[in-house]
Design a binder for these strands. Structure first.
Length: 298
DNA sequence: ACGCCCGCCTGTAAGC
DNA sequence: TGCTTACAGGCGGGCG
């Protein structure tokens, strides 16, 4: 029976997507807003990008954090001089709060930010696909004038949990794009923040196949897709994201999420579908594992 | 405009 | 036991 207990793909490394980044961002807000970032140490140069002059530390040191915002899979920390620290976890990035500033650096710690009277914030990232950089919000003009996104994030599409992206708007966007549903959900300019794990879970909840054309959906199916997108992401946030066996995803305090208990397809190849009992299938699509029920997703 | 590759990177585990 | 190989995937870029 030993092979029957082969865990649900123990090697899988779920990556921070919208629910995980949202969880980190909410806790980060409580930790850094109003505090001064006293000192910055960059020990992994690759993690600090888009700075030709190595000015990351000097642009952040001595600044006070005014607020934290998540946009897609990015976190934005506004500083008191108008600059914005932008963070992306890539595949293996973690932001961790360390209470005692003297605590030895964990392996793959690339950036440390010492907060006035509140320990240290550390960016740990074994695979170094994540990045931190400093930018500025671009001022938008016209009817909705005000501070917009940094130009590096201008490509991001709407937030899936924003009320303005209702099912009718989603339907209109689907009509203008050709690709399959999974490709669309994962396309950050179509909708921001959804990656491999949550696209599979959303499409299972919507009972739609990953390769269905967006243009083929009728109104009822678009409504289902929209409701599933909002439902899955909202519940995943409520359970503080997904951690699998390798526990790659940890929150700001090193704790795991709990949404993995509700995964219906991701990492469950060969196991029974919770809805119709046929085995969940895994296909390799564009270099990534795609999980779905071949019977009840159509 | 889209689908499809690659390169970037390391930890893990399977296979020999 | 130790080596090699495959695999996981976000994102940007390139190619057809």
């Amino acid at each position: 029976m030993a092979c029957a207990v082969r865990p649900a793909a123990a090697w899988l490394s779920p990556v921070p997507e919208l629910p995980e980044v949202e969880t980190i961002g909410r806790d980060l807000s409580a930790e850094v807003v109003g505090r001064e970032i006293e000192a910055v140490v960059v020990s992994g140069a690759r993690s600090v990008r888009r700075h030709q002059d190595g000015s990351f530390a000097s642009r952040v040191e001595g600044r006070r954090a005014l607020g934290v915002e998540r946009r897609g899979k990015y976190l934005l920390v506004d500083l008191d001089d108008g600059a914005v620290v932008v963070a992306h976890m890539g595949m293996s990035g973690q932001l961790l709060m360390v209470e005692a500033p003297g605590t030895p650096l964990a392996p793959h710690t690339h950036v440390s930010l010492r907060l006035a009277g509140a320990g240290e914030l550390r960016f740990v990232d074994p695979r170094t696909f994540g990045e931190l950089f400093v930018s500025r919000r671009r001022l938008t003009t016209g009817a909705r004038a005000g501070p917009g996104l940094p130009p590096e994030l201008a490509h991001l599409g709407p937030e899936p949990l924003d009320a303005s992206l209702d099912w009718k708007v989603l339907a209109a966007r689907l009509r203008t794009r050709k690709g399959g549903l999974k490709a669309l959900l994962m396309n950050q300019s179509f909708v921001a923040g959804i990656g491999n794990l949550y696209s599979d879970e959303i499409l299972f909840a919507a009972r739609l196949r990953w390769d269905r054309r967006g243009t083929d959906l009728d109104a009822g199916q678009v409504r289902r897709l929209h409701r599933s997108m909002v439902g899955v992401l909202t519940q995943a946030i409520a359970l503080r994201g997904s951690s699998l066996a390798d526990q790659q995803y940890r929150d700001l305090y090193g704790r795991t999420g709990r949404y993995q208990g509700l995964h219906r397809v991701y990492g469950r190849a060969g196991q029974d579908c919770g809805r119709c009992r046929s085995p969940i299938e895994r296909v390799a699509w564009g270099g990534r594992g795609t999980y779905f029920c071949p019977r009840c997703q159509i």
